[in-house]
């Protein structure tokens, strides 16, 4: 088995367990590559990849671009904020323009759920979802799984708590699908206003008490509070959010075991985690970033079908 069961990477939902394992195993090889003195391989030479970022992104965009360049692909970048696109060109027109440019693969981030699957239906290129609204962010979930595996040796049987704004988070959803497929137990924790009412139907535990969640888990994945996605007030103030759901060093130290702290970035230092936690040896936040490049190289390589 060295082929994915799917033509696009729209979400973890559409991947099999074997697909995920194949991506993680392939990422191992690329991780070795990017630690060589010469970090570039010719795997995707002559393949053109368009990075379409309709929503702001720093690390995901850089990570994809780096992964593409290390694979020797030709890269074009398109960035536009949601509002300017809304006023002018529609997504379908943008798509048609890309089609005309003979692009082989498209990496897209978009503010609306389902945008990647919309693209896949209308464009004859391989689509990689780099985040669509509050739906999925599959490469983030894959790199998170890769990082957990690297740190703990295995994912099966591990307990992962996802803490924060679950309602607006594509990272949470992709992580839930990915970790469950790999045999981990998942718990979500946050204020009830930021936890979707029917999330239990996905087979996750729900916990509103942070300490209980931390005591339960092996890994805590801290999500950023996405103020920009909140159309109304879901909690009174950031200060009060931090009182209830902020992780600080003294809280971590008071828990009897050492848990792994993850964060998809960007961190709001002092809100969901304090600096001493973010910079502690328990945190693998920078390893996540490094692994992100390897995982994205694996995804691009496997979808390009050159193997």
């Amino acid at each position: 088995m060295n082929k994915l069961s799917t033509k696009h990477l729209l979400g973890i939902k559409n991947l099999t367990k074997q697909d995920i394992e194949l991506i993680l195993a392939t990422a191992d090889n690329f991780k070795e590559v990017i630690n060589r003195p010469i970090k570039k391989v010719p795997s995707l030479r002559d393949i053109t990849i368009a990075n379409l970022f309709f929503e702001n992104s720093t690390r995901t965009k850089l990570s994809f671009e780096l992964a593409e360049k290390r694979l020797s692909a030709d890269v074009i970048n398109f960035s536009a904020s949601g509002s300017s696109v809304k006023k002018g060109e529609t997504l379908i027109d943008t798509v048609n323009n890309i089609l005309a440019m003979k692009v082989d693969m498209v990496v897209m981030r978009h503010a609306n759920a389902g945008a990647a699957s919309f693209l896949a239906k209308h464009v004859n290129a391989k689509i990689i979802n780099a985040g669509d609204g509050a739906h999925e962010h599959p490469t983030q979930a894959l790199l998170d799984a890769y990082s957990i595996k690297q740190k703990l040796g295995t994912i099966k049987g591990k307990k992962v708590a996802i803490i924060g704004d679950i309602l607006h988070s594509r990272v949470a959803l992709s992580n839930i699908f990915c970790l469950q497929k790999l045999g981990a137990e998942v718990l979500v924790c946050g204020p009830t206003t930021l936890i979707p009412r029917y999330i239990c139907a996905l087979g996750v535990k729900v916990e509103t008490n942070l300490r209980t969640a931390l005591e339960w888990c092996d890994v805590a994945n801290m999500l950023r509070i996405q103020i920009e996605r909140q159309d109304i007030k879901y909690f009174p103030s950031l200060r009060e959010y931090t009182m209830l759901y902020g992780v600080n060093k003294s809280l971590l130290d008071s828990i009897k075991k050492e848990i792994v702290i993850m964060h998809p970035g960007p961190i709001n230092r002092g809100v969901e985690i304090t600096s001493d936690v973010a910079d502690s040896k328990q945190a693998i936040i920078l390893e996540q970033v490094e692994n992100g490049v390897a995982v994205r190289m694996a995804v691009l390589y496997l979808l390009a079908g050159r193997n």
């Binding site: 389902g114 669509d132 509050a134 979707p196 009412r197 029917y198």
Partner: peptide, 14 residues
């Protein structure tokens, strides 16, 4: 608002 809305990441109408 349902299991489907959660798994599609779409805002639910209760």
């Amino acid at each position: 608002e349902s299991k489907t809305s959660v798994s599609l990441g779409l805002k639910g109408i209760p």
